[in-house]
Amino acid sequence: MTPPTRRDITPDDTGTDTGPGSTTPPKGRMSRLLHMLARALARQGFDGIARYGNALGALLWHCLPGRRRLAVRAIADHLGVSQQEARRIARESFSHNARSFLELVLVGQFGFELMGDRLIIDNPDRLRRITASMRPLVAATGHLGAWEFMGSLLGRWQPDRPRMVVVRRNSNRTLNDFIFAMRGARGLQVVDHRNAVFTVLKGLKRKGCVGFLVDHNCRRNEAIFLPFLGETAAVNMGPALLAVRAEAEVWPAFIIREGNRYRLYIDEPLDTATLDGDRNDKIEAVARYYTEAVERAVRAHPEQWFWMHKRWKTRPKQDD
């Protein structure tokens, strides 16, 4: 199979009806304001969002000195670079992170059939293997590059099969509903992580594809502790557990910015059905696999990762 084309998209399967291009107004004054702002920003296009993102990143760099110091220190400690180089990488990362935030309003405009030569497929053969696969698929990515657009691609992947992404819910309901609507603008089902297990397993059993962000800190009761960028980190075991239970293939994938273009990288998959050992051994093997994939991507493109996050906050019990 090949990625869907524009003519495959019909009014019945384009996802949420509250995205930037919707004619159905969302409920609530603040919600309407957010969607109006999203539509105004979306009209600026990819180049406009890049400019606004760079400006917002510069503003955040100056207004968030604590996060600035955290990012510089984390880069120097985990990449082994000088303070000057760490500061340069950190400043660029603020701009990339701001662009990622604003790119949320463009999710509905990003896709294989929409981007032309602005979207580069690094390994077309792996993409063909994914689209041809009849196995349950787990897509593992991180807060790196244009990560919001992974949902755009996943949302149009084989519309007759379940496509979903698991995310953490925002405590502000209006903001959370807005974010969920933006992320679902291409037909993706956005699943609250607190209620994910049954929904995800059901989707995977129907040979669906589920995306996870696997690079952020988590609570100790959710974690396996593994090396990440030279230091032990709490790695969320949830995606690994669900992949093992569904005997899914695990595909790490990342969208990296290259000027005004985007490059999709897809790693070789891990087939959980071939793993040896008991369930715990398999879960650790999967978690280690996607953590190492994220580390390789971060080392290759450090300026595009979310360094201001307290990635190594949760410690193993012996560190208490």
Rank of each mutant, 00 (worst) to 15 (best):
A253D: 07
L275H: 07
Y262D: 04
G277Y: 04
R288I: 02
G259Y: 00
D271G: 07
V286N: 08
R288S: 14
I266P: 09
R261S: 12
Y289I: 05
I255W: 02
D271N: 12
R257Y: 08
A285K: 12
A253V: 11
L275E: 08
E284C: 12
N280M: 14
K282E: 09
I266T: 10
V250I: 13
R279D: 09
D278V: 09
Y265L: 11
R279T: 14
I266Y: 02
I266D: 04
V286A: 03
R263M: 11
R261D: 00
V286E: 01
I256S: 07
D281M: 00
A287E: 02
A287P: 06
A273D: 15
I266W: 04
A253T: 12
D271R: 10
D271W: 04
L270N: 05
A273T: 15
F254Y: 13
D276P: 11
A253I: 10
I255A: 00
P269Y: 09
E258W: 02
D278E: 09
G277L: 06
P252K: 01
I256D: 02
D267P: 12
D267K: 11
G277A: 11
R279M: 03
N280T: 15
V250L: 08
P269L: 12
E284A: 13
E258C: 12
F254I: 12
T272R: 11
L264T: 03
Y289M: 00
R261V: 01
D276Y: 00
P269S: 12
T274A: 15
